[in-house]
């Protein structure tokens, strides 16, 4: 279809905005990967970081710490957010309380991470120290759970909302109990959306730095338990850069972080597409 002359300028601007978004992403990815990837090899991934005051070394203990804090946050926030979304969407009517809870989740998602970190520091590191080990990957993970929770709750709720009412009616109409309808029809149908919410939360947890800075402790040693202080990759990146100006270790760590997040995103997308197609019978 021919474009009218006076529509060409706005159209060009829209096109440029679209391209700019893509371009910025590519520049960042290319820059980090070009600088970081040459450093990433088996040794970098499996060696311990160098001791205080020296540059270089691997990032093995920081990968383990990232897995630990992320795992703790998902283990805590996952069931609560999915359970909360199911409760809100299936068991409560659209009323004042529900709007309050939803609003609360949104506000929680908007609290600056350093403020969440401050709370985590006061509550988990100081007040609950006998149970969390003070500075520890457990304290860090629990603090991250506050940030994962609202993201995954809202996404799960949206996913449950998209399940057609006819499917619930169909199930209840056959004499299924409400619980059976939820477990056998509603949740399986909403599963791709629920998993997407958890992955978004996971991405947030892996990438978070400020809240971790105040709660996880930052020790370079390989953790033995969740009660040990640890240094996740994001914090390691921050430390080596600000303390030692070790840009190459920072780039290498950044590259590993980005690859991990890209891999998680693509693999989940692929799995969920397969699952959705199976539901649709394709």
């Amino acid at each position: 279809m021919p474009v009218k002359r006076r529509e060409m300028v706005p159209l060009a601007l829209l096109w440029a905005s679209g391209i700019a978004t893509l371009f910025i992403l590519i520049v960042i990815l290319a820059f980090i990967l070009a600088n970081g990837l040459p450093l990433v090899n088996w040794n970098f991934l499996t060696a311990e970081p160098s001791v205080w005051g020296q540059t270089g070394g691997g990032i093995y203990s920081t990968i383990v710490a990232t897995l630990a804090v992320t795992g703790v946050s998902l283990a805590v926030a996952g069931p609560i957010s999915v359970g909360g979304a199911i409760y809100l969407n299936e068991y409560t009517k659209e009323n004042f309380l529900r709007r309050i809870i939803r609003q609360a989740a949104e506000i929680l998602a908007g609290i600056p991470s350093i403020v969440v970190g401050l709370f985590g520091f006061l509550f988990f590191v100081i007040y609950l120290a006998p149970y969390t080990g003070g500075w520890s990957v457990l304290s860090g993970g629990l603090t991250l759970a506050f940030m994962v929770l609202p993201i995954s709750l809202r996404t799960s709720e949206e996913a449950l909302k998209t399940v057609p009412a006819e499917l619930r009616e169909g199930s209840l109409g056959l004499g299924a109990t409400k619980w059976q309808a939820i477990t056998t029809v509603v949740v399986p149908t909403a599963l791709p959306g629920i998993v997407t919410g958890l992955i978004l939360g996971l991405g947030r947890a892996i990438g978070e730095t400020a809240a971790i800075l105040l709660t996880a402790g930052g020790a370079l040693n390989l953790i033995n338990s969740l009660y040990d202080p640890g240094r996740p990759m994001t914090l390691h990146l921050y430390d080596v850069l600000t303390e030692y100006r070790d840009t190459s270790t920072a780039y290498g760590t950044a590259a590993v972080l980005i690859i991990a997040i890209l891999a998680i995103t693509f693999i989940t997308d692929w799995l969920m597409n397969r699952y959705t197609n199976k539901l649709k019978g394709l």
Binding site: E166, E169, G170, S171, L174, G175, A176
Partner: peptide, 25 residues
């Protein structure tokens, strides 16, 4: 039991749709 205006099969196999009721019971 009710049959609805718009067909509302579950996103499951033909077999699992028919077996759904007996299974929940």
């Amino acid at each position: 039991g009710m049959v609805f205006q718009k067909p509302n099969p579950f996103p499951k196999s033909i077999y699992d749709n028919v077996a759904y009721g007996p299974r929940v019971h």
